[in-house]
Structure formats: C-alpha cells, structure tokens
Design a protein around this nucleic acid. Structure first.
Ligand code: MN
Ligand code: MN
Ligand code: ZN
Ligand code: ZN
Lengths: 141, 141
DNA sequence: AAATTATTGCGACAGATTTGCAAATATAAT
DNA sequence: ATTATATTTGCAAATCTGTCGCAATAATTT
C-alpha cells in the first residue's frame, strides 16, 4: 500500500521500482519478519535466489528494510519508514515475535543515556526475550 | 582472570575446564565482541574449527557467552556474569563497539513496558547506532 | 593400571550467500 | 518508434559457514 514511498526512495537513489522489487516488497508488507528461506520459497518460480539476496541488500542499503537477528539466523522486516518505530518481544517458548510500539519516554531515555556517554545516537534496536501472554498462561497452570 | 567462575559453571554442568576451553575463554576475555572467523583465525594451528563452534555452543548453553547482532552477522562476547549487564554503542563510521553500562531506570522502564503488554520479560538486548565521540568530533570540524 | 566417559581433530557434507557473465528489461537518445 | 546505453535478472559455479560421524586423545573413575 506504500508503493509510492517505495518508488520515491528508489528513484532518489537512481533505481527504479521493477516488478521484482514490488513483489519482494509485497512479500514483506504487513507480515511478521521473514527469513530468507521463506522469502525464497514464497517467490519460487517467479524469482531467483540471487535476485532476492541482491534486492534485500539493496533495500537494506536504502533503508527500506532491516535485518533482525533471531538466535543464529536473521529475518527481514520493513523499516520504520513503513512500519513506524517499534521494538520486539520474542517468546522463548513458542518463537512468536510480537511488536511493542515505541514509547516516547523510553526513546528519550535511550537517547539521553547515549548522549551522556558522548555518543551521537541515530537509531537503536531493542529486542526483549521472555514469554508471550499465551505461553505465560500455559506455564503458570 | 575469572577462571574459577568459569570452572564452577562448567563443573556444575558436568563438564570440565580443559586447555581448549580456557584458551577460547581467554580469547574473549577483555576483548570487544568477536566474530567466529576471528576466533577461528586467532586459534589457528591450536584448535579445530569444529571444536570452536562446539565450544561456543556449549558456552552459550551454559550462559558463559552470548551472541550479538551486528548487521547480518553475529559476534560473541562474555555474558553478563563476567562483564556485568550492559548495552552497546556502535559507531557507524569507524565500526568501534563501545560498552554502555546499564542504568537502573532504563532497565525498569523496559521491564515495565514489556509487562504492560502482558509479556513476561527475562532479558533483552539494546544496541544503539550512531557516531562515537572521536568520529563525532571529526565530523563537526 | 584398566575401564569408562568426555573431548577434540579430521574429513566429508549440507545449506546459505556470493559472484561472473550472458540474456532480458528498462531508460535515454536519436 | 528505433537504436543505443545502462540497469536488472537468471543461471551455474564458486565460496563460506556451520554441522556431523567417527576414530584418536585426554580426562575421570574404578
Ligand atoms: Mn516488527
Ligand atoms: Mn560489551
Ligand atoms: Zn509464546
Ligand atoms: Zn567511530
């Protein structure tokens, strides 16, 4: 639904919005973070593996997506530009990843702490691990 | 310098502190987070690749080390037990990784926000990206 | 010391990511 | 619209990363 923004970002960097790129964007839009393997299999028959890697690399370079590490592997999700800034709650039991909307107090505190350390913060990633509501329930029976 | 703590953790889990394990621990002690490739090359001639992977896996399982997300790779550092809980400031320019000591207010706020979302937080990772003091200076000349 | 158990090295291997290059597409110039 | 130019994609091969089975070594127990 944000193809115009996507196109603008690409154009600004001298690239164009091709069928391939729209397809990959759509695979990510509105979904949980996706692994490369899932993206590759969802695009099977339409796109080559190498193209997907190259496109994700391009998207990351232009700030369209970013990578999240999940244990050993990583997953891809659209960047804050498309989703709004948020953090993640990772359930250690069922593996689900929930979004935690950003909180102004928290954001301010993070920037303040970094600044006090003479650092110039630009952005950050906060991943919280624990039990999701469902698994927390199940555990306390 | 914390070989006794290391030995205790290993013993508690039915493993022993071998020369190999002490060597890998020492490669991590006091250093910035290390990539597997660096660990492997630093131990070249002394330890096999497979042994290093197996040892890091063991260390992680026992909470001796943990993995850190750096872009789409990861690096290893000693866990909070040895370093104290802290976060990281990543310089986007020179690549340096600085430690940011944990702050009680921040920790509380993170746990509170997760709890409000019906989640049971156990731990978290906060990585801040931006410019380190040196690069910030250089940029504003 | 002998027996038992844990640890390590050494291939071989499977999966993930990258690369070179030719074919296909898109964009710019007649 | 056609031709020239630059970008993008697919395909196959190469490389890198992490894993596994198994025999050799080292540590622990009897
Ligand atoms: Mn998200
Ligand atoms: Mn650190
Ligand atoms: Zn869960
Ligand atoms: Zn720097």
């Amino acid at each position: 639904m944000q193809h115009s923004t996507l196109k603008a970002i690409l154009k600004k960097n001298g690239s164009s919005l091709t069928r391939t790129r729209r397809l990959i964007f759509d695979l990510l839009d509105g979904q949980d973070p996706q692994s490369m393997q899932v993206l590759i299999s969802r695009a099977a028959g339409q796109l080559d593996r190498a193209t997907i890697y190259r496109t994700i690399e391009l998207f990351e370079r232009l700030g369209i997506v970013h990578r999240l590490n999940i244990g050993w592997k990583y997953k891809i999700e659209l960047s804050d530009v498309f989703t709004g800034h948020h953090h993640h709650l990772h359930c250690s039991k069922c593996g689900k990843i929930l979004d935690l909307p950003s909180n102004p107090m928290l954001e301010t505190m993070i920037d303040t702490l970094a600044t006090k350390a003479e650092f110039a913060p630009r952005n950050h990633i906060l991943e919280i691990y624990g039990l999701c509501p469902a698994c927390k329930q199940a555990g306390s029976k």
